[in-house]
Design a protein around this nucleic acid. Sequence first.
DNA 1: GAAATAACTTGACATACATCAAGACGAAAT
DNA 2: ATTTCGTCTTGATGTATGTCAAGTTATTTC
Lengths: 199, 199
Amino acid sequence: MSYFYPMYEIFQQYLDDKISLSSEEASSIRESSIIKKIRKRQYLLQEGDVWRYDAFIAKGCLRTYSIDEAGSEHIIGFGIENWWIGDRESLLSGQPSRFNIDAVEDSEVVLFAHTNFEKLCVAIPAFGQLINQILQRSFIASQNRIQAALSYTAEEKYRAFLEKYSAFANRLPQSMIASYLGITPETLSRIRKNASRKP
Amino acid sequence: MSYFYPMYEIFQQYLDDKISLSSEEASSIRESSIIKKIRKRQYLLQEGDVWRYDAFIAKGCLRTYSIDEAGSEHIIGFGIENWWIGDRESLLSGQPSRFNIDAVEDSEVVLFAHTNFEKLCVAIPAFGQLINQILQRSFIASQNRIQAALSYTAEEKYRAFLEKYSAFANRLPQSMIASYLGITPETLSRIRKNASRKP
DNA sequence: GAAATAACTTGACATACATCAAGACGAAAT
DNA sequence: ATTTCGTCTTGATGTATGTCAAGTTATTTC
């Protein structure tokens, strides 16, 4: 009631933009939330742990990635302000996660224990619907990414990435973008060089 | 009450396996359903049309694919008995679909108008939860497919496909499997030849 | 059941991209 | 300012997979 959560306000704003809530509903959501600061390179989730949360990024940038047998990282996805992040597979199955999530820059997330979160979704239908819509959109986005991964050339993948995620482009090291696109940093470097010649 | 829908029984069985419904609930679902037969090569959805349904495959095999500027097909996904199929992007956005869905073999689907379907999901929470769970699983599956598409070799992709979708392997022409994996039919042919030598 | 059509195989060749290795640049640390 | 470290760039070379083309084997179709 009297604590000042600057980061929560960002989440509140996000909610207000999408749905309208009674003040009781709004505060029951707030009461379930936990604000968590994550320094650059710090983990939000480490491979082997079970993910039992729902997490909204209020500030910063995080990545989800796996590490293969050879020890190299494969970036599965990114998130910035106003995105949700987490491992649905671990959440749904209760199994240890195959993924790592860490901060690309100093970040703050609004975290919910998933059990509470589910109760909120049921108790507040508009909220549940919003969350469901996000899941739908995520699915659609991943379908599109599959298509890109399978049928685009490296250059087309990068162009599509810039088009869709220009907000990310400046905040991520190129090597991470390359990994996300499934190409090597060298190839991405050459693509960028060419692109600057023939724009 | 007195109509005999052999195909509906398959859907009923599917439901009974997953959730328990009162007989009123069961019949309200049944009353919204439409059985549709689709001959091999016939469309369930054609590019440019809006998809406004939820469709359960009771029998047969269907595929979702797009056609690129060059005119070649890219297979996005398959479905067989007990799978759901459709275009969520078009459903959610109300925009014309970029995809085609057609039958790989003579098939029958249980079709719901999406507006009715949504009402059922709200009115019958267990049903809504089931549907939501399917969406979650689809999302997880597509995340895994992204990873495969980005980091696996052609041979690894095919092995993973066999492992996960052995039920499909015999029912699909190789050229479709190749397209699904994002490789050429020639490459798949060579992979299979090698695999038979060193199993 | 013959003819027509489609699906698969195989080979020769081309190429996009990966890999390996060295160097250049910039940001942070001392 | 100099060193250090990580990130990006550039070149030389290798390889998996694509492309083109021809031949073979299955499946439809009439």
